[in-house]
Amino acid sequence: MKTYYYPGCTLPDKARDFDTSARACCELLGLELEEMERWVCCGSAFKLDHKNIMQHLAPIRNLAEVHKEGGRLMTLCVFCYNSLKRANYAFLAEPDKHEVINDFIESDYDGKVPVVHLLEMLKDEVGFEALAEKVKRPLGGLRVAPFYGCLLLRPQEEIGFEDPENPTVMEKLFEALGAEVVSYPHRLECCGSYLSLKDRDHTTSMVTRVLESAVEAGANAIVTSCPMCNFNFEFFGGELVARDTIHTFYFTELLALALGADRKLCGLEQHETDVDRLIDEALAAPATAAAGSETAGSGTSGARASGDQAPDARNG
């Protein structure tokens, strides 16, 4: 099944780093992508009032476009991912509305186009063991705090790709890349999202809570798959960002780097902090978890090794 890439509004511009690096990753991993020829707004935030499926026309229209070509849709921005996947779910749940919507957008959409995130493809199609073998530049000196935020995993019954209370995909990913994965409590928190338009002090406190907890756990990099989190962390991160204490990355930037992509293709341009220095140091350091060996991707053990290990007695 052909994979159509849906970039959304932010990736071609304010999150170019995400877009460039993701394309480089897919290239190096042999994941074939084709950008959708015509795409429209995903609706940004998924509308939560219950009544009107017509509010989900924009995302459905994108899916109908992919349906015409007979493929699936891959996206990176979690706003797009959440909105498209949930709209699809809502559409499927209301078969009696299909006709009126299809008449309106001039299509014959059936609700069956799969919506996937690149992280899903890495987990289910590439596999972390295989990925570890492809690592050319292990990320030895990076102490990575994976940040999931809200929309990548919730709500579970509609998104359903990881346990929203106990996800492991990014931990496994960065173990495979040879980085040290840091366990900290606030990886599922809200970054403040677009409350930053209005309540900037509050956003600052939300961001600080997350970053401080990551730094306290020893992280020097926090990794997201969302331009919104990325922006909030860098813009509202205060001293922690100003002093280069913690750097914010899209997961694809570090993945591309580890896979040996040309540095120019790894994004790394739109950062507020001095990421170049961090990365030079990181690449010079020896890999932490043995990338490319059979131990990579061995579950969540790396994440919990910093003190959260369950007592053995429990497992018996």
Partner: peptide
Amino acid sequence: RIPQQALVA
């Protein structure tokens, strides 16, 4: 610098 998606939403 703010992402487009934030303005839309």
